[in-house]
Simulated assay, not measured.
Amino acid sequence: MARNDVDLLDLSLDELLTTTRTVRKRLDLTRPVPRALITECLEIAVQAPNGSNQQRWNWHVVDEPDLRAEVAEVYRSGMSGHQADPNRATRDIDYSTEEQQRIASSVAYLRDHLHKVPALLIPTVGGRMDEADIFLQASVWGSILPAVWNFMLALRARGLGSAWTTIHLHKEAEMAELLGIDAAKHTQVGLFPIAYTVGTEFGAGARQDLADLIRWNGAG
């Protein structure tokens, strides 16, 4: 039993690691998520390793409906700007494939229902990387991403789910103003919906053949 008397799913470690999926359409929009449960998952998140153990992170949780709706509007504005940008990074993706159509439908669903998700999380990490060299960028991201993944694993183990979204970062300044984040000193990592999942059965995702991706002792 978890500390909040929540039954953990009966998953092996490998199952937990391979079935923690991006969840959008299967987020339960009707079931409240207790703050104590979110806190418990964040306690697991902050056990992740981070650079020099500086713990330069903050965790902005939004569960008040009116503010949640404002956050969702910033998110939608970021998506609209991204879709209208001819130079967006995803321009080389073939959206006509069945897989990409499925993902696009899922993304649109989350966009339209984000304000209904019980809680939203925006992690931040101290410092700015706008003009940082690759060493600093890797060091900073490497000090927050393991903690965020810990959080998503903790959610999954408790029958909840999330999705790692970054689209609102096109409107990072607007989100910072809305939530009182000092944008000159803190970098937003993403936005994570938090909800119980509709059902708890998830499978491993389709991936490329690993044999085509491994390089032993150099590029060869």
Rank of each mutant, 00 (worst) to 15 (best):
Asp112Val: 00
His113Asp: 02
Leu114Asp: 04
Leu114Glu: 05
Leu114Trp: 08
His115Pro: 00
Lys116Ser: 11
Lys116Ile: 01
Pro118His: 09
Pro118Tyr: 05
Pro118Leu: 05
Leu121Phe: 11
Leu121Cys: 08
Ile122Met: 12
Ile122Trp: 02
Thr124Leu: 00
Gly127Trp: 04
Gly127Phe: 05
Arg128Trp: 11
Arg128Ala: 14
Asp130Asn: 09
Ala132Asp: 14
Ala132Tyr: 14
Ile134Val: 15
Ile134Lys: 06
Phe135Lys: 06
Leu136Met: 11
Gln137Ser: 14
Val140Met: 12
Val140Trp: 01
Val140Pro: 02
Val140Gln: 04
Trp141Asp: 14
Trp141Ala: 15
Ser143Arg: 05
Ile144Cys: 07
Leu145Thr: 10
Ala147Val: 09
Ala147Asn: 07
Trp149Val: 14
Asn150Ile: 07
Met152Arg: 05
Ala157Tyr: 04
Gly159Met: 01
Ala163Tyr: 03
Trp164Phe: 15
Trp164Val: 10
Thr165Arg: 02
Thr165Phe: 03
Thr166Leu: 01
Thr166Ser: 13
Leu169Ser: 03
His170Phe: 12
Glu172Ile: 08
Ala176Ile: 04
Leu179Trp: 07
Gly180Trp: 12
Asp182Ala: 11
Ala183Arg: 00
Ala184Asp: 15
Phe192Trp: 01
Pro193Asp: 06
Ala195Trp: 06
Ala195Ile: 09
Tyr196Arg: 01
Tyr196Glu: 01
Tyr196Phe: 14
